[in-house]
């Protein structure tokens, strides 16, 4: 897929574990794992907003477009 999720990069920069992020964002580990591994088909604005708030970043820092 052309949209790359750089969540693991941002988590490493913020030195935050998946467990901590899931607790602070309020979504399950399974869903966060789907997002991190790039299996997700869609992301809700509210989830994106919560992640950006916790990681103190912009949506563009998490999502990146690379043409196939």
């Amino acid at each position: 897929m052309a949209i790359i999720v750089n969540l693991d990069v941002m988590m490493a920069r913020r030195k935050m574990s998946l467990t901590e992020l899931s607790e602070r964002v309020g979504i399950t580990m399974a869903n966060l794992s789907i997002l991190k591994t790039g299996k997700a088909k869609a992301i809700r604005f509210e989830t994106l907003e919560a992640i950006c708030l916790v990681l103190n970043c912009q949506p563009g820092d998490i999502l990146e477009f690379i043409p196939d």
């Binding site: 789907i34 299996k39 997700a40 088909k41 869609a42 992301i43 809700r44």
Partner: peptide, 8 residues
């Protein structure tokens, strides 16, 4: 349903 399941 599959799409819904993979929507985070």
């Amino acid at each position: 349903k599959d799409e819904q399941d993979l929507t985070v």
